[in-house]
């Protein structure tokens, strides 16, 4: 058992989150994928904090958590307002950027 295991786990979780964003059409699910990616990153921070014996990593993880919380608030508000106007939570329906 070593600290590297945590890092590997973090990498796997991060990749799963990324693939989720690519694959799932439901905006909420895709958003949860983003959250998973953030948490994976946090796990790395905390692991490295322990590895180096410094608390800075934990503090950064704490800030990431706060920013993630605000991001969730705004992101979900956007999803709700899009759902209200377009009647859909699918991110494929929001393709106004299409030329």
């Amino acid at each position: 058992m070593s600290l590297v295991n945590y890092l590997v786990l973090s990498g796997i979780l991060f990749s799963i989150g990324a693939v989720t964003v690519l694959v799932r059409r439901n905006a909420i699910v895709a958003f949860m994928g983003v959250e998973l990616m953030l948490n994976a990153a946090n796990l790395t921070f905390v692991t490295f904090a322990r590895m180096h014996g410094e608390l800075q990593g934990q503090v950064i993880a704490f800030f990431v958590m706060v920013v993630a919380a605000t991001e969730v608030v705004i992101g979900l508000a956007i999803i709700v307002s899009i759902f209200r106007t377009r009647g859909s939570a699918s991110i494929d329906d929001v393709n106004l950027l299409k030329s």
Binding site: L22, A30, I91, D92, N95, L97, K98
Partner: peptide
């Protein structure tokens, strides 16, 4: 090149990945 811009967020995310 316009045809590359599908407007789908997921395509863009795939490109990024």
């Amino acid at each position: 090149t316009r045809r590359l811009q599908t407007g789908y967020v997921r395509s863009y995310a795939a490109t990024m990945t």
